[in-house]
Simulated scan of single mutants.
Amino acid sequence: MREAAPPVGQPLAAAPGIRRIVAPNPGAMTGNGTNCWLVDHPGGTAIIDPGSDDPAHLHAIRAAAGPVTHILLTHTHRDHLTGARPLGAATGAPVCGFRHSAVADFTPDIALDDGSAIAGLTAVHTPGHATDHLCFVTADGIVFTGDHIMGWSTTMVPPAPQGSVRQFLDGLARIDALDARLLLPAHGPSITAPAACIRALIDHRLTREATILAALDAVPATLEDMMRRVYRAVPPALHRAAEMNLLAHLEKLREDGHAVHGHDGWRVAPGRPGRAGSPHPA
């Protein structure tokens, strides 16, 4: 669901004790920008995903927060990470993220694992979009979903080793099992019907997988050929992201025994129906 561009630098209430300030980093992959979440707890305010290092943005965060006790990262993609160290230096708050960072130049001050409790939140490891992706869950059923579930677009899932469609689907199932009442993503508006949203995301992935499988043939095709078959309507600005999504899905199809990859490209596995339903010769 798309929303009008939120006002720059102004905190927007999402729930009691929770508000967001949208970072000034809009784009094809970020929508209106990264949602920086301010979450009050008895000790002060935890900041989730500062996003931009723009001085005015960091000033707005500090002005809207109580004493900043922790800076939490859902993952280390730059549109989430960039403002973390500057905000930490300005407030003295530790930067907290998954124990095994996905980028070589970042090590969290406090390393989190699946199930870690911090600032009144519980971390849930949800790789798929990124190996170090975390969601954060409140005691009363609110989930900060980072990029795993977004309020404006489906999530880009890169191929291994950065991502995995299987892990992404497993993460959706984990979040669904929490029976959340509200999802607060890193991009786009709040999601007020979590179960329906998650079901739609799972259905989207399974439909995409079926489309890709149907586009495979006994004759090998390059990734570029597969792109033309599967993503015909994608604008050029999103071709790279679509290609990464496609490769991640092909990797899962290979894991499941439905696809084969060789030096000349991707083809349907022996004995599986190819394009137009013709079986690959065994």
Rank of each mutant, 00 (worst) to 15 (best):
D147G: 04
A180I: 00
A160Q: 10
P159S: 11
L134M: 15
A130M: 13
R99A: 15
P159H: 11
D179M: 06
Q162D: 12
G115S: 09
V165H: 10
Q167R: 14
T126F: 08
D140C: 15
P194C: 07
G120N: 06
Q167I: 01
R181V: 06
R166Q: 14
V103A: 07
A111S: 15
D114P: 06
T126K: 05
S101W: 13
H80R: 11
P108H: 11
A177D: 15
D109E: 12
P108R: 10
I149E: 03
D132K: 10
H100M: 08
A186T: 02
D114C: 06
T82Q: 09
T138V: 01
D109Q: 07
H148Q: 15
V165W: 04
L178F: 07
I175N: 05
I175F: 15
L121C: 08
L87D: 06
A180G: 01
H148G: 11
P159I: 12
T82I: 09
S164M: 12
M156T: 07
H100E: 15
G97S: 15
G97T: 12
A111C: 08
T82K: 05
F144I: 14
D79E: 08
G163M: 13
D105W: 09
G141T: 03
Q167N: 07
G83F: 10
D109H: 15
S101G: 14
S116W: 00
P127H: 03
L81V: 11
H80C: 15
R99I: 05
I142D: 00
G151E: 00
V165C: 12
L121M: 13
I149C: 04
A130D: 14
A119V: 04
A173E: 08
L172I: 12
S153W: 00
D114Y: 07
V95C: 10
D140P: 06
C135E: 10
F106H: 10
P127R: 01
L172N: 13
L87C: 05
T138K: 00
P159E: 11
G141F: 13
H125P: 09
L184N: 02
G83S: 11
D105R: 10
D179V: 02
M156K: 01
D113Y: 05
P158T: 09
A119Q: 02
